[in-house]
Amino acid sequence: VTLFVALYDYEAITEDDLSFHKGEKFQILNSSEGDWWEARSLTTGETGYIPSNYVAPVD
């Protein structure tokens, strides 16, 4: 499982989006939707859509 880490803070715009803070880690559930990925936060356990350009793979 490839994990991703937030590079910036993000505040949800719609109820389907997931708010997060810089440094938060995610498991990507679906990355086939283009620039918005469905993800689960490993910090909160919540799922929602995140902007793919706000995250990077964890080394």
Results as ranks from 00 to 15, higher is better:
V1G: 14
V1T: 13
T2L: 12
T2V: 13
T2A: 11
T2W: 11
T2K: 14
T2G: 14
L3Y: 14
L3E: 08
L3D: 05
L3I: 15
F4I: 04
F4R: 02
V5T: 05
A6M: 01
L7P: 00
L7I: 11
Y8I: 07
Y8G: 06
Y8D: 07
Y8P: 00
Y8K: 09
Y8V: 07
D9A: 06
D9S: 08
D9F: 04
E11Y: 10
E11F: 12
E11C: 09
A12M: 03
A12W: 02
A12S: 11
T14K: 15
T14S: 14
E15M: 13
E15Y: 10
E15N: 12
D16F: 15
D16I: 14
D16V: 12
D16K: 15
D17P: 02
D17K: 14
L18T: 02
L18C: 02
L18D: 00
S19H: 05
S19N: 06
S19Y: 03
F20R: 00
F20M: 09
F20S: 01
F20L: 05
H21V: 14
H21A: 15
H21M: 14
H21K: 15
K22W: 05
K22H: 06
G23S: 04
G23N: 06
E24Q: 07
E24P: 00
E24R: 01
K25R: 13
F26M: 05
Q27L: 12
Q27F: 15
I28V: 10
I28H: 01
I28T: 02
I28M: 04
I28W: 02
L29V: 08
L29H: 05
L29K: 06
N30F: 07
N30M: 08
N30R: 07
N30Y: 07
S31L: 10
S31K: 12
S31E: 08
S31C: 10
S32N: 10
S32Y: 11
S32V: 10
E33I: 11
E33P: 11
E33N: 15
G34C: 07
G34E: 15
G34R: 12
G34A: 15
G34L: 12
D35P: 11
W36H: 08
W36E: 04
W36Y: 11
W37T: 03
W37Y: 09
W37A: 03
W37F: 07
W37S: 03
W37G: 01
E38K: 10
E38D: 05
E38N: 09
A39Q: 01
A39F: 03
A39D: 01
A39I: 03
R40C: 09
R40K: 11
R40S: 07
S41H: 08
S41A: 07
S41Q: 05
S41N: 12
L42P: 03
L42S: 05
L42W: 07
T43K: 13
T43A: 11
T43S: 11
T44H: 04
G45M: 07
G45H: 07
G45A: 04
G45L: 07
G45W: 07
E46A: 15
E46D: 09
E46Y: 11
E46N: 11
E46V: 10
E46R: 12
T47S: 09
T47G: 04
T47I: 13
G48L: 02
G48E: 00
G48V: 02
G48K: 02
G48M: 03
Y49Q: 09
Y49M: 13
Y49A: 05
Y49C: 07
I50N: 00
P51N: 11
P51W: 08
P51G: 04
P51D: 05
P51F: 06
S52E: 04
S52D: 02
S52R: 11
S52W: 08
Y54M: 11
Y54E: 01
Y54R: 07
Y54P: 01
Y54T: 05
Y54H: 09
V55H: 01
V55A: 04
V55C: 05
V55I: 09
V55D: 00
A56D: 05
A56L: 08
A56H: 08
A56I: 11
A56W: 09
P57G: 05
P57R: 09
P57S: 07
P57W: 06
V58D: 10
D59F: 14
D59Q: 12
D59A: 12
D59V: 14
D59W: 12
